Amino acid sequence: MSQSRRLRRANGMKGSTVRKALESDTPLNSLYALIPENRRTALDRFVRCFGLSPAKLHEALERERS
């Protein structure tokens, strides 16, 4: 089993879980909830690589909730 597949399974990111999150009423928040707390800072760094700010990501999450 590949390393990335092993990590996805360990984190609960199975195909059915991701599919269910995408089909939910709030897909962005559902997918964000699948990311473990200790990996969210890495996501913020990843977002910065695309020239976006983590604050904009969190604003989008908040907008989707309301």
Rank of each mutant, 00 (worst) to 15 (best):
13 M>K: 09
19 R>G: 05
54 P>S: 15
57 L>M: 14
4 S>Y: 03
66 S>N: 11
10 A>I: 09
34 L>A: 02
48 R>G: 08
44 D>I: 01
61 L>Y: 05
48 R>L: 13
49 C>P: 01
65 R>C: 01
14 K>E: 10
12 G>M: 11
14 K>Q: 13
37 E>W: 04
54 P>K: 06
32 Y>M: 09
7 L>R: 15
24 S>R: 06
53 S>M: 12
45 R>H: 13
6 R>W: 09
55 A>F: 01
18 V>T: 03
66 S>Y: 06
13 M>R: 12
6 R>T: 14
66 S>G: 14
59 E>W: 06
30 S>R: 02
48 R>H: 08
35 I>S: 11
43 L>E: 09
63 R>W: 06
64 E>C: 02
24 S>Y: 11
7 L>N: 09
26 T>Q: 05
54 P>D: 13
60 A>Q: 07
31 L>T: 01
20 K>G: 08
35 I>F: 05
51 G>Y: 04
53 S>A: 10
52 L>D: 04
39 R>I: 08
41 T>M: 02
39 R>G: 02
12 G>I: 10
28 L>V: 10
60 A>F: 00
1 M>Y: 12
1 M>I: 14
22 L>H: 00
42 A>D: 15
32 Y>R: 02
65 R>P: 00
53 S>D: 13
29 N>M: 08
39 R>D: 09
22 L>W: 12
18 V>Q: 05
26 T>G: 00
25 D>H: 09
24 S>F: 07
36 P>D: 11
29 N>Y: 00
28 L>T: 05
5 R>H: 14
40 R>C: 07
3 Q>N: 09
49 C>E: 15
58 H>N: 10
3 Q>P: 02
44 D>Q: 14
64 E>M: 04
42 A>C: 08
65 R>T: 12
8 R>Q: 14
53 S>F: 03
2 S>A: 13
38 N>S: 04
62 E>P: 02
28 L>E: 02
